[in-house]
């Protein structure tokens, strides 16, 4: 048939390297076979050149991690080629749910009492207090409309950009990513100002006026964050 008319693999050279558009209608095995063949031809041209990065565009094809590994290995085997990115239009449901959970703002109306742990994957908007001995953990930022008197851990999956904000900031401990900070042993006078905590340039958690956040973390303005 007209197999040769519509090639499965289209190559384009850009200034970033090589972009390979892979057809998403054919079978995976056919694709691998043709890719191998095409790269073989190219291999002979300049084998002494610098490392060329390859960007793969998969279209509407979903690759399992094993298949992705196979593709990378295949391309890496061709001397001076290395895979820089693999881009697909589709993702699995689980990935989509995980992505949604990690980026959404979860609002919870309750008092987190001593011994209770509230864990969310994305940002947390708590309408209530965190009492001493209570813990809130979020993958993203933590915003508390009430008083924070317990432990708050923002960016628990390693996001150092995460912040903690509370109307009354009297925490036992603050954690952002893997940095930790605890309350001073002396009593501080009650002041009723909203405050926020973030990691500064010295990798320390700093508590400061809430109003500074807009300069420190301008990305907070967008509710849906980048992929």
């Amino acid at each position: 048939m007209n197999r040769q008319k519509q090639p499965y693999v289209t190559m384009k050279g850009t200034k970033d390297g090589l972009t390979l558009h892979l057809d998403d209608m054919c079978s995976y095995d056919d694709l691998i076979a043709e890719l191998d063949e095409k790269l073989m031809i190219n291999e002979n041209k300049d084998f002494d050149g610098p490392l060329v990065s390859v960007h793969l565009k998969l279209g509407n094809r979903y690759l399992t991690p094993e298949q992705e590994e196979e593709l990378r290995a295949l391309i890496r085997a061709k001397k001076n080629l290395v895979v820089a990115s693999i881009d697909s239009n589709v993702m699995t449901k689980e990935e989509a749910i995980e992505w949604k959970q990690k980026t959404e703002i979860v609002s919870v109306a309750k008092i987190v009492r001593s011994g209770q742990v509230l864990h969310v994957h994305g940002d947390l908007l708590l309408i209530g207090d965190v009492n001493p001995g209570g813990t809130v953990i979020a993958g993203g930022n933590i915003f508390i409309l009430g008083a924070l008197r317990g432990i708050a851990h923002a960016g628990c999956y390693g996001n150092k950009e995460a912040v903690i904000a509370a109307s009354v900031m009297k925490p036992m401990q603050l954690r952002i990513s893997d940095v930790m900070n605890r309350a001073p042993d002396y009593k501080v006078d009650e002041q009723n100002e909203m405050e926020c905590a973030y990691i500064d340039d010295n990798d320390q958690i700093v508590v400061d006026r809430l109003q500074l956040l807009m300069h420190l973390r301008p990305t907070l303005t967008r509710l849906e964050r980048r992929f």
């Binding site: 009492r113 001593s114 011994g115 209770q116 009492n131 001493p132 001995g133 209570g134």
Partner: peptide, 12 residues
């Protein structure tokens, strides 16, 4: 008071 807080949490 701390223990009362814990108990209230459990009662809720």
């Amino acid at each position: 008071v701390r223990d009362a807080d814990r108990i209230i949490g459990l009662l809720e």
